[in-house]
């Protein structure tokens, strides 16, 4: 036996590349950002696959996305319109331009505040939900099982959700925006009696046009989609048991909140920085 052992050379280990580590919070912000961009690219690459292989899943997620979130999103935007209507009434009355109360909704609301508040609600309701769902699947090793069974996990889990978001988000945003205007109308015209009904809708539509509407919808949709991507990233890469899922849910909320603000800051420069697109003053 010993002679045999001596003649057989020890097997040479084939160089196996070390598995890519998912960055933890100890790695730098840039590492995580790069990892996130890599993930986003693979999600985008998975979109045709998702459309070809799992179209029913896209539609299922679209219906879930709408049915589970519509009440909370519309309710929050309604309350936001009410608060804005209430506070601006007192403010504009004190400087004597309360007949232009609807301009607050048409300019302030439509050019950013509705989008940002929409982003907050979507981050809280949709984003945290996705992190919890995907994180739980990752922790209970369902995603690994899926890979073993030959289902491509990123197209099946993430790309379908993003495609569903691309279907639902514009519609949800436009509905939310009209609910917001409705709340301002109810508070200013019916409750406080600041302006007449005709005066409200005249000013509301005077201060917006098709360009504003298209830009607002593009803005709202892109905020919604980036929230979906960020929260899928945090859910898909959860680790460390239930605690890790909880921590990732909290962290995705932080990233989303800052993202919504900073995206708003850049987009308002891009859309309105050099061109106020207003019916007055030019």
């Amino acid at each position: 036996m010993t002679a045999l052992d001596e003649t057989v050379p020890a097997p040479v280990a084939t160089p196996v590349p070390a598995p890519r580590q998912t960055p933890t919070s100890r790695n730098g912000v840039l590492d995580r950002l790069g990892h996130f961009i890599e993930f986003t690219l693979s999600v985008l690459r998975g979109m045709p696959v998702a459309l070809r292989l799992y179209p029913t899943e896209v539609l299922r997620h679209a219906s879930l996305l709408f049915r589970e979130n519509v009440v909370v999103v519309l309710g929050m935007l309604f309350v936001m319109g009410a608060v804005l209507g209430l506070t601006t009434t007192f403010l504009l009355e004190s400087i004597g331009i309360d007949s232009y109360i609807a301009a607050v909704s048409a300019i302030g609301g439509m050019r950013g505040i509705i989008q940002v508040v929409f982003g907050w609600v979507v981050a809280a309701k949709v984003g945290c939900g996705i992190v919890a769902e995907l994180g739980a699947m990752r922790i209970s090793e369902e995603i690994d099982a899926m890979e073993v069974m030959g289902i491509r996990s990123i197209p099946y889990l993430v790309s379908t959700r993003v495609l569903a978001g691309a279907l639902v988000m514009p519609l949800l945003f436009v509905t939310a925006m009209s609910v917001n205007f409705m709340a301002a109308y109810l508070f200013n015209v019916q409750l406080l009696g600041t302006v007449s009904s005709g005066g409200f809708s005249y000013v509301l539509y005077l201060f917006q046009n098709l360009r504003d509407f298209v830009l607002a919808t593009v803005w709202g949709t892109s905020i919604g989609l980036s929230i979906l991507l960020v929260s899928s990233y945090f859910g898909y890469h959860a680790k460390g048991g239930p605690v890790g899922v909880g921590r990732n849910t909290a962290q995705s909320m932080l990233v989303n909140l800052v993202l919504v603000s900073l995206v708003g800051m850049c987009l308002v420069q891009l859309f309105y920085g050099s061109n106020p697109n207003a019916p007055i003053g030019n």
């Binding site: 939900g129 994180g135 209970s140 048991g241 899922v245």
Partner: peptide, 19 residues
């Protein structure tokens, strides 16, 4: 309810406090 329950609890906490 384990990890899914904890994730859902965080989600509900954020939504409830927002509302």
């Amino acid at each position: 309810g384990g990890s899914i329950g904890l994730g859902r609890a965080v989600n509900q906490a954020v939504v409830t406090s927002f509302v």
